[in-house]
């Protein structure tokens, strides 16, 4: 009986989707503008405004600036990431108090250093109350802007090709990839990935999935397309799908040959 009750309890726990009972989104404010791309020159000062709308209830919103930060796995180089961080931004206030159903404007001032190098600089304005909103800023300092993309690594698992792509340039670049696979019989299958924006100093993962690959040996060609003026870079690789299948087959053939030889010798 105890076993049945335990089983029933477990079934009930797994059957009830916990998400259905999740609390409502507790955010009671929202920002209208969430992604900025501002172009300017060194030594300039620019000021941008973010409109905050509040729902029911008086709200105190804390404002803070967060520089460019990436998860470890996406960081090409801490120094490069640090160099592209906006550390010249100042929110005009650290706290805004907004009445119910009202709006308020939070301004951020950017005073660009005179010696700042051309390139993209990243940072975010974080607004926190009961919920959290992030407004992302990209400041493009004009000058020599380079778009340089490198293929860091290729990971092949079954029919899935994972590409690690790094942005070695000094501005955000849109990258897409196509992976062309050809088998021993010469059949070709190409999979392309959607264009993705890669920030300066960032490493991203592009996944191209080839479905229903038969066991065998494959040659692959990866082409990365990027930059405003179409640029592409290619790389070749090869891999096995289900090499165990071939190993077992080979082993079976060897065993069969041994058995045949053995029996033939015995018979002789």
């Amino acid at each position: 009986m105890k076993k049945i009750l335990t089983a029933l309890f477990l079934i009930t726990v797994f059957l009830v989707p916990q998400k259905a009972f999740a609390l409502e989104d507790s955010r009671s404010f929202q920002v209208e503008q969430k992604d900025f791309l501002l172009q300017t020159s060194s030594g300039e000062t620019i000021s941008e405004n973010i409109l905050v709308n509040v729902g029911d209830g008086l709200l105190k919103i804390q404002l803070s600036w967060q520089g460019y930060a990436l998860p470890k796995a996406q960081t090409l180089n801490d120094t490069v990431v640090g160099e592209h961080s906006i550390d010249f931004a100042t929110p005009d206030k650290n706290l805004i108090e907004i009445a119910p159903q009202a709006t308020s404007v939070a301004a951020v001032n950017f005073k660009l250093p005179a010696e700042i190098k051309p390139g993209d600089y990243y940072g975010s304005l974080v607004l926190e109350a009961s919920g959290k909103e992030t407004v992302n800023f990209t400041i493009r300092v004009l000058g020599t802007l380079t778009e340089k993309i490198a293929l860091q690594d290729i990971i092949q698992k079954g029919g899935q090709t994972t590409l690690l792509v790094a942005n070695l340039g000094n501005r955000t670049t849109q990258v897409s990839s196509s992976v062309k696979l050809s088998d021993l019989l010469g059949d070709i299958e190409t999979v392309t990935t959607e264009p993705v924006n890669v920030k300066a100093g960032q490493i991203i993962t592009l996944v191209a999935s080839h479905k229903n690959l038969l066991p065998g040996f494959y040659n692959g060609e990866i082409t990365l397309k990027y930059a405003e003026k179409p640029t592409q870079t290619s790389a070749l690789f090869s891999f096995w799908v289900w090499q165990e299948f071939f190993l077992f087959t080979l082993l079976a053939i060897v065993l069969l040959v041994i058995v045949v030889i053995f029996r033939w010798k015995k018979h002789a």
Partner: peptide
């Protein structure tokens, strides 16, 4: 009011 100027869905400038 806050005037928002956008290009390709990105905010390129705001003014009050």
């Amino acid at each position: 009011s806050v005037v928002t100027i956008k290009e390709n869905d990105l905010v390129v400038g705001t003014a009050v």
